[in-house]
Computed example of a mutant assay.
Amino acid sequence: MTQSPKDPLHGVTLEAILNSLVECFGWDGLAQRIDIRCFKSDPSIKSSLTFLRKTPWARQKVEALYIQTLKG
């Protein structure tokens, strides 16, 4: 799958996406929006990145929320 420069995820790392969402919503707000245990139980950037890199459906939800925050 090729990404065009118009793609909002183009050139943005998963870590940058996660940091942005945590800054915007905090861990509690993120856990409310995306029901993932790594956001609820002792959350950290490192553990969340590990989980998201191994779990495509969760990563898609995080990326979708990030795109939604860019639009809104």
Rank of each mutant, 00 (worst) to 15 (best):
T2A: 10
Q3A: 15
S4N: 14
P5D: 05
K6A: 15
D7M: 02
P8I: 03
H10Q: 13
V12Y: 00
T13Q: 10
T13V: 11
A16R: 11
L18S: 05
S20P: 12
S20M: 13
L21Y: 00
V22Q: 06
V22D: 05
C24R: 15
A31Y: 04
R33A: 10
R33C: 06
R33E: 08
I34M: 06
I34P: 07
R37T: 14
F39H: 05
K40A: 00
S41F: 11
S41W: 08
D42N: 14
D42I: 12
D42C: 09
I45T: 14
L49Y: 10
F51H: 14
F51T: 12
F51M: 13
L52A: 11
L52P: 08
L52H: 09
R53Y: 10
K54Y: 01
K54D: 01
T55D: 05
T55N: 08
P56W: 06
W57M: 08
R59V: 01
R59T: 02
Q60S: 09
Q60L: 07
K61A: 06
V62D: 01
E63A: 07
E63M: 08
E63F: 02
A64M: 12
A64G: 12
L65W: 00
L65P: 01
Y66M: 00
I67V: 15
I67S: 09
L70A: 13
L70Y: 12
